[in-house]
């Protein structure tokens, strides 16, 4: 076989291989060159983040407006500090609130933002002060059980008093 034909086929082979890798990076792994100038950062402190993970979506009214950048423990207050990378086109007011929600009953956890009414806007690097923690199922059941049994004892003491 002629050398130039072999070169052509090998070139085509390598080009297809590169195309396959690019396809996997862009379309499958969704590598979007999301540089820092397209997002801005806010912080939010939570008492308990439950099963929140880095890269979890941040939603306002169900629309994804950003992703969780980092999760750290603040060693002074012992609360979880979550870094929120938000899209530059969305701004939030100073009294916006953040809560950790669960998609479905057992689905992945995400941060739900709720826009407030304050005319001032949060700037990059500021904190969202109004936060509510993740719903931990065990704690919820525990609370329910104690209040249930507490109600029972109250009832029984009341009947004993009668």
């Amino acid at each position: 076989m002629k050398r130039s034909t072999i070169d052509l086929w090998v070139g085509l082979f390598v080009a297809l291989g590169i195309a396959a890798v690019v396809f996997m990076s862009l379309k499958v792994a969704n590598l979007t060159p999301q540089s820092a100038d397209q997002t801005y950062t806010l912080y939010a402190d939570f008492d308990n983040i439950g099963g929140l993970k880095v890269k979890a979506p941040i939603k306002e009214a169900g629309v994804v407006v950003g992703r969780v950048g980092a999760i750290q423990l603040d060693t002074k207050t012992y609360r979880a500090r979550v870094t929120l990378n938000l899209d530059k086109q969305y701004t939030f007011s100073r009294d916006a609130s953040a809560e950790i929600l669960t998609a479905g009953l057992l689905g992945e956890q995400y941060i739900g933002l709720l826009q407030g009414g304050d005319p001032d806007e949060l700037k990059a690097g500021e904190h969202i002060t109004l936060t509510s923690s993740a719903l931990v199922l065990e704690q919820l059941i525990g609370k329910f059980m104690t209040s249930f049994s507490g109600g029972n004892t109250a009832k029984s003491t009341a009947s004993a008093a009668q």
Binding site: V14, L16, G17, A20, F23, M24
Partner: peptide
């Protein structure tokens, strides 16, 4: 080999 594996994946 990596090129073939990438094609297989796609």
């Amino acid at each position: 080999m990596p090129i073939l594996a990438a094609m297989f994946n796609v």
